[in-house]
Amino acid sequence: MTEKKKYPVRTTRKGTLIWPHFNKPDTKFATDPRGEYRGTLRLSDEDFEAIKPIIDDHVSRALAEATDKNGNHLEGLNLKKATAKGPSYPYKKAMDKDGNDLPGWDINFKCSWGGQDNKTGEEYSNKPKQFDCANPPKKIDVFLSNGAIVKISYTMYMWATAGLGYGVTLRPKAIQVIRLAAKGEADADYYGFESDEDGFEHDDEGASDFTEKKQDTVEEDEFSTSGQTTGYNPRDLDDEIPF
């Protein structure tokens, strides 16, 4: 029987969420119809440089170290095909909708919806846990949308296949919420805006009546209140979340 591999838990610096699906599995692009938890974290250039060497090191090792579910490494023709496909990185330069470079880098995170325990047959959820910024941080369950400022705790899974090449997947384990955003909100940096001393500056005292009110909470029925533990794979051997 293959020994269960232990994956170290790491934590990003704070960044901005883009198109997150951490409350409910996204089924649009997932191969499993039950979906996957996924989202992008935009980091500043400086904060990206702190994480890039770690990711690149794992990508470079993936071809030699990645194994299938039975613990076997790629060999022969499959190894040659994976090598020819080349590496895949879970990040890219931040860009606006027209393809122009923006400050920062976008880091992709994803994990499966969950799974089924081989011994008990019970299903478990991989929904990332959420924590606030209290001392010590407390568990919460809020709606995470575009523009939220967070830190993400994650593990790195190295993979290599003949069809896709090789690389790493950053699997989100927990999220610390620094600032919530109204649903669909993205900040000025996301759109490539910056300050201009000669430009228009809004006066809060003259705010329009139709200004959308930011929501920090959601309706109770949007989240499970059954008491079922989510965001934790009982078979994982990860260390404690280092918030």
Rank of each mutant, 00 (worst) to 15 (best):
M1H: 07
K6D: 12
R10L: 15
G15Y: 00
L17S: 03
N23Y: 02
K28Y: 09
F29L: 10
A30W: 03
T31P: 01
R38Q: 08
T40N: 14
T40L: 13
L41R: 13
L41E: 11
L41W: 04
R42D: 03
L43S: 05
S44Q: 05
E49H: 15
A50Q: 15
I51W: 14
P53M: 14
I54D: 14
A62C: 06
E65Y: 03
A66L: 02
T67M: 07
H73N: 10
L77M: 09
L77Y: 07
L79W: 15
K80E: 15
K81E: 13
A84H: 11
A84I: 06
G86M: 05
P87D: 02
S88Q: 11
Y91M: 08
M95S: 07
N100W: 00
D101P: 09
K110L: 03
C111I: 12
C111Q: 08
Q116F: 02
N118L: 09
K119M: 07
K119A: 09
N126T: 09
P128T: 02
D132C: 07
A134C: 05
P136R: 11
K138R: 14
I140M: 01
D141W: 12
V142S: 06
F143P: 00
L144G: 00
G147H: 01
A148L: 03
I149T: 09
V150M: 04
L164R: 15
T169Y: 04
P172M: 06
K183L: 06
K183R: 13
K183P: 01
F193M: 12
G199D: 06
G199Q: 05
H202T: 11
D203P: 06
D203F: 03
D204T: 11
E205V: 10
A207E: 15
S208P: 02
F210P: 00
F210S: 12
T211C: 14
T211P: 00
T211E: 15
K213W: 12
V218N: 10
G227H: 08
G227M: 09
Q228C: 01
T229C: 04
T230N: 05
L237I: 11
L237R: 14
D238I: 11
E240I: 11
E240K: 12
I241K: 02
F243L: 11
